[in-house]
Design a protein around this nucleic acid. Structure first.
Lengths: 130, 130
DNA sequence: GAAGACATTGACGTTAACGTCAATGCATTT
DNA sequence: AAATGCATTGACGTTAACGTCAATGTCTTC
């Protein structure tokens, strides 16, 4: 069961200690302490990776927090109503992601067009200049 | 050939005039003028939609500007070398987008798992409570 | 011709997401 | 025990992306 110090984890994830502490301030993380020092478990690391992926996708930190809350909600003690509420939020998320997926597809399509156009121009120049 | 005033365009796009003017300041847009007033063409509108899509995907404004520059680069007067350079940038973009696509897929998969788990809990509660 | 609607520029304010720096503590190494 | 290395908290700085407000202009409508 491996454990990380703050600078170790940062090195592995390619971020700064300031960033991790900031996330902790915002309630996205709650590592163990050894004295005053922070100790990160594998679960903490996984959490951080969720956060970083959220950032890559363009989400704000509070949105990411909401996602994580969905992610490790404990369904056991929940009432039907609460679970249904959670399901609603999951649905919203999914729809947002699907919109984003469409945007991505469009953009990729456009890039392909541009690429083809460039290639066409290069061919013309080759033919013209022999 | 339709034209828009600034507030008309904002209404259609769901943004504020401040936003549009800000983008103009940043060089993302250069609408015609009628006296002091801005006049937007269909092309301007399309440009704005590109920008907004970029934002939905989580890109910063200067990244979006780079994308738009790729988008309406005039290949005619370019040298082979310039076109190759452009192709390189297009490739980079594509790779970034594909990474993003993977992140999206992962997240969608996780949402499905959460959804199933919720549904399972609901079924149990139904069975238990008759 | 005064009022109201819509436009302009300019300046200052705000929020998120960190960066940077200072003061301090604790453990090991020399 | 002095230096080195890694940690802490706290405070202030910074950048992007706008919001907000003020002062002013123009055009139409009553």
């Amino acid at each position: 069961m491996k454990l990380w110090t703050i600078s170790e984890l940062c090195r592995e994830l390619g971020i700064t200690t300031r960033t991790i502490r900031f996330y902790e301030d915002k309630g996205l993380l709650t590592p163990q302490r050894l004295g005053a020092n922070r100790i990160y478990s594998y679960k903490d690391k996984a959490r951080m990776q969720l956060i970083l992926r959220g950032k890559r996708l363009g989400f704000a930190l509070d949105e990411i927090k909401e996602y994580i809350d969905l992610y490790d909600a404990d369904l056991g003690p929940m009432q039907r109503e609460q679970i249904n509420f959670l399901l609603e939020r999951v649905k919203e998320r999914r729809e947002a992601l699907i919109k984003q997926q469409n945007d991505l597809q469009e953009m990729l399509g456009e890039l392909t067009l541009i690429e083809d156009e460039c290639q066409g121009m290069l061919d013309v120049k080759l033919t013209a200049n022999g």
